[in-house]
Nucleic acid binder design. Structure first.
Lengths: 210, 210, 210, 210
DNA sequence: CATGAATGAGCATTCATTCAT
DNA sequence: TATGAATGAATGCTCATTCAT
C-alpha cells in the first residue's frame, strides 16, 4: 500500500522529520492494537504502554482518543486516495476506469485489514463523523468515482437516466458489502473474482444497452 | 410494579419453577437494550434499571455480565434449532433439505436482528467462547446440516470427494456472509432471492455432475 | 442553627434512618473540608478519605461533585428557611419583621461560616445555578421577605413608590454586603450593631415619611 | 511575531537589560487572564498561549506558577506604593494624610480590579505568603501608614492610648472591608463617599477628644 | 429471593513542571 | 534565550462485581 506513494512524495533526505517520532509511535501502537481489539476496548493506557510513550503525550498530539483514531484513519485514507488516483492514470474509458476502481478498492481493503475495520466498522457510529475533516477524505475518494461516472455518462458509456450520485452510492455500497464479511471473519479475498463478479453485475445494470 | 402478575399467572402449584420472573425480566431487558447498543456499552446498571430489578440480582442468576449474554444467546439458539428441526420435517431429499435449511437460516437471521448481532458480532471475540456451553447449541445447529450432507453423500446427491465438514463450513459461511452486511447496515433482506442465489451457486459446486 | 428545626421536625424515634449513614459521612466530610479550602481545590479523593468512604460512593448518592455541594447547600438552606420562618412567627408589623429578618439572616450567616461561603462565594459562578433546584430554596428565602414588604406596603408602613422587588433586592444585597468581609477575612460579626445600622439606613430610605 | 519590535526599540546598548520582553509578555498575559478567571483555573498552557511564548519559558523567569502570580502582584504593589508615596507628598498633618491615604487606597483598589482580586482574594490562602518577598511590599505599604500614625500621635492629633499597630490594622481592615464587596460583586465604587464615611467613623474613634 | 450499600480497579483526560537541545 | 518533547501525579467519574442482611 505504500509502494506508489513513496515515489510520489518528494521529501528530500535533508528535510526535518515532520512527524515527531513519538507521534508515530502512538499511531503505530494503535494500529497494532486494532488488529486484535475493537477501538472502544482499547485503553489509552494500553496505547501508551505499547508505544513506550507517556500516556499524556497522546493528548499533546491528538485532541482526543477519538481524534487519534481519526488521525490514523486519515493517514490511511490519504494513502488510499493517492494510490487510487495513481492507479487510475493512463486508463481510458469510464468502464475500464470503474473496473480498475473496483479492483483497487477491494485490493486496498484486503491489503490492510486494520484500515478496513476502522473505515467500515469503527467510525460510522461516531457522532459528528460525517462532519469531520476525516470524512472529507472519504468524499474525495467518492469524488474520484463520481468524475468517472460523469465522464461515462458524457461519453455515452453509462446510461443517463439514473442520477450519477445513485450510481456512485450503488458501487461504493457494493464494494463495502463484498469486503465486509471477509474483514469480519478474517477470510482471504479473491480480489480478481470479487471484482469481476461485482463489475459483471454492475455493468449489466448501468451500461446503456443499444 | 409487576408483583401482581404472579397472581394472574396460572402456573399450577405442582409445576417446576421454570424460569423465575426476575430472571426473565433481566434477559428481556438485555434483549431490548441490544437493539440499540452494542453489548460492551450496555451497563449492568442500565440492564437492572430497564428490568425493574436490583442490580445484584443479575449475579444471582448469571455468573457474569457475559454469562447473561450467553444465556440470552442460548435461549435464542434453542428456539432457532427447535424451529429449524421442525421446519425440516417432512422434506425429502438432501438437496431440498439444504434449500430449506438455507432459506430458514436466513429467515431467522433476518427476523431477529438482536439475535443475529449477538451471534455474528458480539460473542466471537469472547475468550473461551468456543469452549462454552452456548457454543454447543451452535454445534447442534451445525450438526443438523451435517446430517443432511451425510444423507446426501450416501444417496449420491452430493459429491463424495469433498470432506463433509468442509461442505458444512462452506454453507454456514455462505449464509453468514450473505446476512452480515444487511445486519450491520440494517438493510432489508430479500429472503427468497438470497436463498436461491446462494443455493444456485452452491449446488453447481457441490452437486455431482453426471 | 439546629435548635428550632428539631422541634419542628416530627420524625418519630422509630422511623427509618432516611439518610444512609455514608451519605451523611460524605456531606459532613465536605463541610469540614470547606472550612479550610475552597470547593474547587477539594478533590473527591480527599472527600472520600475524610469520610472514610469509597470514592465511588459519592456518585451513588450525588450525581456529581457539584451535585454534592448543592446537596450540602440545600440542607443548610432548608434549615435556614425553616428557622427564619419560625423566628418571624408572632412578630407584628412589617418594620419589626424586617428588623428580625435582617438580624436573623446576619445571625445565621455568622453562625455557620461554611454555609455562608458556599452561598456567597462558591455557587454563584456555577453555570446553571440560577436554574437549579437549590436556587429554588433561595427564592423561597427571598419570598419570605417579599411577603413582608408587600404587607408593609399594604399597611402603609413602606412607601409604595418603589417596586417591592427592588426593595427586596436592596435589603438582601445589603445583608450580603455586610456579611461578606467578615466571612472572607474570618472576622467576628457584631450582630446587633450590624443589624441596627443596616436597618437604620434602610428605614430612612424606604419608610414613608408623613 | 513580535521579533521586529527589538529593532524598533531604541534601548541604548549600554543600558541594563531591564525586563526581558518575554518576561513582560508572560506577566501581561496573566493579568489579562485574571480579569475573567481566578488564578487556580488558569493553566500555564493558557498563559503561554496568550503570551505567544513557550510554556517552559515561564519556568526560566519564575520558579513557579505561584511565583509568577507573586511577581505580577509585586509589580502592582511597587506601583501602588510608589504612587501612594507620591500622593502623600506636600500634605500636612496626620489627619489630612490619613484621609488622603484612605482615599487613594480605595482609588487604586477601584482602579485595577485584577490587582485587587489578587491582593484581597488570591494570595491570602497561599501557604508561606506572609513570609514571601512579595509580602514585604505590603509591609512597606503598611509602613507608610504606620509613619503617619506615629506622626499623629507625636503631634497629639491621634490618641496615644491605643497601640499604633492596632490603629493601622483597623484602618487597613476597614479599607479592605469596604472595597471587597464591590470587587466581588463587580460594583462601582463611590470613591469620595466611601472615603468620607470611613474617615468620619474612623476619626471619631481614634482622634483625641478634648 | 431480593436488595441497598459498598468497593477496587480502571477510565479518559489535565496539568504543572522538567529536560535536552 | 528559547523551545518541543516528555512525564508523574492527579482529577472527576464509571463500572462490574461483592456482601451483609
Amino acid at each position: 500500500m505504500e509502494k506508489n506513494i513513496k515515489i510520489l512524495s518528494a521529501e528530500p533526505a535533508s528535510a526535518k522529520p515532520s512527524t515527531p517520532p513519538s507521534r508515530l509511535k502512538i499511531t503505530e501502537a494503535l494500529k497494532v492494537l486494532l488488529r486484535d481489539k475493537d477501538f472502544n476496548s482499547i485503553t489509552t493506557a494500553e496505547i501508551s504502554r505499547m508505544a513506550h510513550v507517556n500516556e499524556a503525550l497522546i493528548y499533546r498530539y491528538f485532541i482526543d482518543k477519538r481524534g487519534l483514531l481519526h488521525a490514523v484513519l486519515s493517514d490511511y485514507l490519504q494513502e488510499f486516495v493517492a494510490n487510487l488516483t495513481f492507479d487510475l492514470k493512463g486508463i481510458h474509458g469510464a468502464i475500464n476506469k470503474i473496473q480498475k476502481f473496483v479492483w483497487a478498492s477491494i485490493h486496498y481493503y484486503d491489503d490492510d485489514r486494520v484500515f478496513s475495520k476502522i473505515q467500515l466498522l469503527e467510525v460510522r457510529n461516531f457522532p459528528g463523523y460525517f462532519d469531520s475533516e476525516t470524512y472529507q477524505m472519504v468524499r474525495k475518494y467518492a469524488g474520484l468515482l463520481m468524475e468517472i461516472i460523469e465522464e461515462g455518462i458524457e461519453s455515452g458509456d453509462i446510461r443517463n437516466d439514473i442520477a450519477p450520485s445513485s450510481i456512485r452510492q450503488l458501487i461504493l455500497g457494493a464494494i463495502e458489502h463484498c469486503c465486509l464479511p471477509a474483514i469480519i471473519f478474517d477470510h482471504k479475498i479473491d480480489n480478481d473474482a470479487m471484482a469481476d463478479n461485482l463489475c459483471e453485475i454492475l455493468f449489466h445494470g448501468i451500461t446503456r444497452k443499444i
